[in-house]
Design a protein around this nucleic acid. Structure first.
Length: 646
RNA sequence: GCCACUUUAGCUCAGCUGGUAGAGCAACUGAUUUGUAAUCAGUAGGUCGUUGGUUCGAUUCCGACAAGUGGCUCCA
């Protein structure tokens, strides 16, 4: 007999070899029907796999992530079975559940054949048919030699490659119906629970995520235990598309792209420009308070500067090709750092001047690969909320903390809660190649950064081998409404460029010393930040950011003069207002203004004209009642000044 | 850059198997002077992304290019 500890602490005894599914049955049949997998001693297992020793057990159903992931991974196998049926000889790489969203994919080598949209519906049908057979997923351990023989016979170089990374004794096969795959598992007990199936798209994906490798066909899909849940999920996706920044950006007149200007080069329309200017105002206020000094630098520089900085060899591919004048090459700047360093070195610096903080909303150009461009989130012309802080080692931690505090201040203003701070570290084996060869400095600065994060109580993850070549960095990761991940802002340590540029200051002992540099961009770039804000607010910007803050809606032409007089008062109070002077009914004016997501509407007619008031309507919230225009302006002015979120 | 798909009026989209195009909204004109999410009528709008080819004839079929979309690689 073995002892099984349940999550509530209860201990039950079973025969050795009992499965989680058996245990579930012993509790209740209803529970057993819902079990998809089980956590045995913290590891997710097949619910049908025999347990031979004392263990803690947690049953996993659709309600647990472990259950869902097992469900989706098993669905990938089901899809593979259908694919093999439709494309005999197809070779399979891996088919995991997606990490950040519902669903799964399988990477497949179809031997040059193509999958069409119609094929997807055929595959869906086939999968549904196979799922109904309710075939069990059967696990089988196999010696490595036998596995190699099996796949050599099949001529499957992909599975042989997978096998080469596995040790004898940990190799398992899973079979359901007519499909057998090398797989670590776990799987759900059988295909029956997979009731609703949708293959969402076909894509190419490099084998092992390496662009030098062959491209495999990746089929994405999502499955649910019921049609209802699938429908709900699909509706959710439709809803998400409505707040896609590309759609909102067009509807709200924020930006536009034009073929003749070029891909990835957004044109900021008047409404977008207002948001840009408000963000810059916020940044300037904040940075001035933080002791930053503003600078302005040219958009181009000679090749020699990028050779000095070391950027050219690393970065050339993502820079616009140079323009050549009198035998000298000039590049459009892809980053502002070297220009700022030149300002640092323009004067002799004393330790008394440090920390020196140079800030600029710098315009950069990056020749991103065409396939990488994405609305405002990934562009070729970007305006970066950039600054470089030159400081001593002693000052570093305080400076880094201050920058971190600035991030938090901003995120509070914008109500940004859903993000992950990512601490990107170096990889010791790549010192001298991908990373500057300063092992102690790496460890020292990484630890300083880690301390700052710990003290600020911000949740963060550490990622090895993601640092910049000149030092560790903290990135703020966010997700676009369609689920794509982006770095919104970045805060980087740099102990390399100072030396490359020969930057120095005279320290207390009258000796030259190289400053540490912090690169930081808490508001990222205008492009990505506004793209993010559009989705974050679903276009409903708070009053301080709204391109039009107040729309005055006269009931009829008779009240146009009164409406215009209110507009004058708004202008005098620095409030961005407009009058809807169209010959339309009030219902139509309200509808159009609501759709343009203008925060405040002032409806004015006979009554309001007589007592100098306005009927206030808040976007999305309806009629708020009447108020004197003066009082409204006073309140709105405060709301704007404080940059209130609601 | 790679794989796949898409491109029709300012916008959102129809247009079966090849015979040079339609709707709604927006715009413009007129009527209406309106009280909290769409007043009515009329007018105007497109060498069907560009460019080769097949064909008596191409928006429709094929190719190239461009831009966009979904991914991969990459990234603020």
């Amino acid at each position: 007999m073995i002892k099984i500890t349940l999550p509530d602490g209860a201990v039950r005894e079973y025969e050795a070899g009992v499965s989680a599914l058996d245990i579930a049955k012993s509790i209740s049949e209803g529970l057993a029907r819902k079990v998809l997998a089980a956590e045995i001693n913290g590891q997710v297992w097949d619910a049908t796999r025999p347990i031979t020793e004392d263990a803690s057990l947690k049953l996993l159903t659709w309600n647990e992530d472990g259950g869902k992931n097992t469900f989706w991974h098993s669905s990938a196998h089901l899809m593979a079975e259908a694919v093999e049926d439709m494309f005999p000889g197809a070779k399979f790489w891996v088919g995991p559940a997606l990490e950040k969203q519902p669903g799964f994919y399988y990477d497949i080598d179809l031997g040059g054949r193509q999958v069409t949209e119609e094929d997807l519906s055929k595959l869906e049908k086939k999968m549904t048919e196979l799922a109904k057979q309710n075939n069990s997923y059967i696990r089988k351990a196999m010696p490595k030699a036998e596995a190699i023989e099996y796949f050599t016979g099949k001529g499957d170089e992909y599975k042989l490659d997978l096998l080469s990374g596995l040790n004898d004794g940990e190799i398992t096969f899973y079979t359901q119906g007519n499909f057998t795959d090398l797989c670590r598992g776990p799987h759900i007990p059988s295909t029956g629970p997979i009731k609703a199936i949708k293959l969402t798209n076909i894509a190419g994906a490099y084998w092992k995520n390496d662009s030098n490798n062959k491209m495999l066909t990746r089929i994405y899909g999502v499955t649910f235990p019921s049609q209802k849940e699938l429908d709900e999920y699909l509706t959710l996706l439709e809803e998400a598309k409505k707040r896609d920044h590309r759609k909102l950006g067009k509807e709200l007149g924020i930006f536009t792209m034009d073929d003749d200007v070029g891909p990835g080069l957004p044109l900021w329309m008047p409404n977008g420009t207002i948001i840009i200017e408000e963000l810059e105002k916020l940044a300037k206020e904040t940075e001035t308070k933080g002791g930053y000094k503003r600078v302005v630098t040219p958009h181009i520089a000679k090749e020699s500067m990028y050779l000095t900085s070391g950027h050219l060899p690393y970065y050339q591919d993502s820079m616009y090709p140079p323009m050549e004048l009198d035998g000298t090459k000039y590049y459009l700047k892809a980053m502002n750092c070297p220009h700022h360093h030149k300002i640092f070195s323009a004067e002799h610096r004393s330790y008394k001047e440090l920390p020196l903080r140079l800030a600029e909303y710098g315009t950069c150009y990056r020749y991103e690969q065409s396939g990488e461009l994405f609305g405002l989130m990934r562009v070729r012309c970007l305006h970066m909320n950039d600054a470089h802080i030159y400081c001593t080692r002693e000052q570093f931690a305080d400076e880094f903390r201050a920058v971190n505090d600035m991030y938090i201040k901003y995120f509070r203003i914008f109500g940004i809660e859903k993000y992950v701070m990512r601490l990107s570290l170096h990889e010791p084996s790549k010192l001298g190649q991908k990373y500057i060869n300063e092992p102690e400095l790496w460890l020292e600065t990484e630890e300083m950064v880690r301390q700052v994060l710990k003290e600020s109580n911000i949740p963060y993850i550490e990622v090895p081998d993601e640092g910049a070549f000149y030092g560790p960095k903290i990135d703020v990761q966010i997700w676009s409404t369609i689920g794509r991940e982006f770095t919104l802002a970045t805060n980087q340590v740099d102990f390399a460029q100072g030396r490359r540029f020969g930057l120095e200051f005279t320290n207390k002992d009258n000796a030259p010393e190289v400053p540490l540099i912090i690169h930081r961009a808490p508001l990222g770039t205008h492009e990505r930040f506004i793209g993010f804000l559009l989705e974050h607010y679903a276009g409903k910007f708070p009053a301080w950011l709204a391109p039009v803050q107040v729309k005055v809606l006269p009931i009829s032409d008779k009240f146009l003069p009164y409406a215009n007089s209110i507009l004058e008062s708004l202008k005098n109070a620095d409030i961005r207002g407009e009058v809807d002077d169209r010959n339309e009914k009030i219902g139509k004016k309200i509808r159009d203004t609501e759709l343009m997501k203008v925060p405040y509407m002032l409806v004015v007619g006979e009554k309001e004209m007589n007592d100098g008031s306005a009927s206030i309507r808040r976007q999305g919230k309806g009629d708020l009642g009447s108020k004197s225009v003066d009082e409204f302006i006073k309140e709105l002015t405060a709301e704007i000044k404080e940059r209130r979120g609601e």
